[in-house]
Amino acid sequence: MKINLDAEVLSDNNAAAEFNRNLFKENKTLVINLMSSPGAGKTTLLEKTIAALGKDYTIGVIEGDLATEKDAERIRALGAKAVQINTHGGCHLDARMIAKVLPELDLGEIDILFIENVGNLVCPSGYDLGQNHKVAILSVPEGNDKIPKYPVMFRRTELVVLNKIDLLPYVEFDLEMAAEDLKGINPESRLIPLSARTGEGMDEWLKWVKDAYQNLQEQ
């Protein structure tokens, strides 16, 4: 017999994301899902963000990687609470993995929770984790063609942090073209160029995070 199921493939994930979202909301925790290719500088951006905001906000981090605790150790060294998820070959984090580690974090104590997704510009874009904001990080050495090449990622994120702008003089990266491509794919998305290493442009990113936190508290 034929059964018309008409069911979203990701319905289980979406239910888990809803569960997470409710927990985040109850605790008024701002949750930011950071996605990028490997090596774009997610962990360095987080280190600098924690150093800048750590005295005014309690920050937690969920680190997603295929293997090792290396990133979580870097974050803990700064005094922030970090939980590592090893996906053992899995190319993305899903909402169930997040739900499973939430008991290890005291959400009531955490103002801002960053989720550092597995380095990959394809798969993580499909999974709602229950976050408030999805942010993509792109770095100058990757080239400006990544935006049109991975349209689904850039359509589903509301902010693109362009990292490593200190390398602009040394590599071919057309900043204007990147901004045009982004506007063509997602007119509502913002682009913040910065260098986590030198600190240039970091203020705009930090302001974006602080504003997002403030908006959430006023809701």
Partner: peptide, 27 residues
């Protein structure tokens, strides 16, 4: 590839109306 740019009026006003579905239709 600049999917929100309308080919007719060149404005960035395009909204996706199909192509994002991922469903089990039947079995």
């Amino acid at each position: 590839h600049r999917l929100s740019i309308c080919p007719d009026c060149s404005m960035p006003g395009g909204k996706i109306i199909a192509g994002e579905t991922f469903k089990v239709q039947s079995y």
